[in-house]
């Protein structure tokens, strides 16, 4: 008899709990995009953070929600990008790899150190301290904050100005966020014609502080046949969407601040 009652009680409890579980399961059901799990599956799973997200899970979520490109994983490379591309329904090849580019040519030779900044070797600190490290108010401070944040060690400060190794760069954009002067931008890897300056001052003021800076002569604008050179009065900037990379602007530039002059030479030769 006792056995029977016990069994019955347990059975009733089991039924109640069972219904309870079913109910809570339905009530608190979270819609998970199945693509997210599929994308996560394809990622290498070593949670290195090289993509700029907190780990592979975070990257998978970002890819599915459209915040990251399908080729955002630097470790997986093209193979992983293609597989993720299949899941997401985009071809990985269609998205061109982007690399960081430093818009400053202000090495120690062409501009000089004006202040006597000592202190934390961090551009963000130097920018806060207000002591000008270089004459130019726009130029690279050269203390290497971008170098520190780069997970791929693709940036090095050479001669007082940061330089990106495009082969190592994975386009995560961490350096873009870190630079207090906003000098770094992400450009398509194939884009070779770029303006290496961000000084918005007028010509004479630029000449005073840096012999390599864009003086805003607008010769490049006149050269460009496709209207890819944006010009805001004192600073030129290439629009990679329009640029056909003929290199004519670079060849004409009197201060040689536009990269890709060799392209024009090849054409004429």
């Amino acid at each position: 008899m006792v056995i029977l009652i016990t069994t019955l009680v347990i059975a009733v409890i089991g039924v109640i709990v069972g219904y309870g579980l079913v109910y809570t399961g339905k009530k608190f059901h979270v819609e998970v995009d199945e693509r997210e799990a599929a994308v996560r599956e394809k990622l290498p799973g070593n949670n290195c953070g090289g993509c700029g997200f907190a780990g592979c899970d975070a990257l998978a979520a970002a890819i599915v929600s459209g915040k990251a490109q399908v080729n955002a994983c630097p470790v997986g490379g093209a193979a992983v990008a293609e597989e993720i591309g299949k899941i997401m329904g985009v071809s990985a090849g269609a998205v061109e790899r982007k690399v960081a580019f430093v818009r400053c040519k202000g090495s120690c030779e062409v501009t000089h150190n004006q202040g006597n900044y000592v202190g934390v070797r961090d551009c963000r600190s130097a920018a806060l301290a207000g002591i000008p490290v270089t004459d130019c108010d726009y130029g690279c401070l050269g203390l290497g904050t971008c170098q520190q944040v780069c997970p791929e060690k693709a940036i090095s400060v050479v001669d007082g100005v940061a330089a990106v190794n495009p082969r190592k760069c994975v386009g995560c954009g961490l350096c873009v966020k870190a630079c207090p002067r906003g000098l770094i931008e992400l450009v398509p890897e194939s884009q070779k014609v770029l303006v290496q300056c961000r000084n918005r001052d007028r010509g004479p003021a630029v000449k005073k502080v840096c012999s390599a800076g864009c003086i805003g002569c607008s010769l490049c604008v006149k050269q460009c046949e496709v209207g890819a050179m944006e010009f805001d009065g004192s600073l030129a900037h290439v629009d990679p969407e329009k640029c056909v990379q003929c290199g004519k602007c670079a060849a004409k530039c009197p201060v040689k601040v536009i990269t890709g002059a060799d392209l024009a030479q090849k054409e004429t030769a």
Binding site: G119, V120, D122, R124, S125, L128
Partner: peptide, 13 residues
């Protein structure tokens, strides 16, 4: 250690 400098920067960010 440059403590205050670190905080100044962290606060600004």
């Amino acid at each position: 250690r440059p403590l205050m400098q670190t905080f100044k920067q962290a606060k600004a960010e």
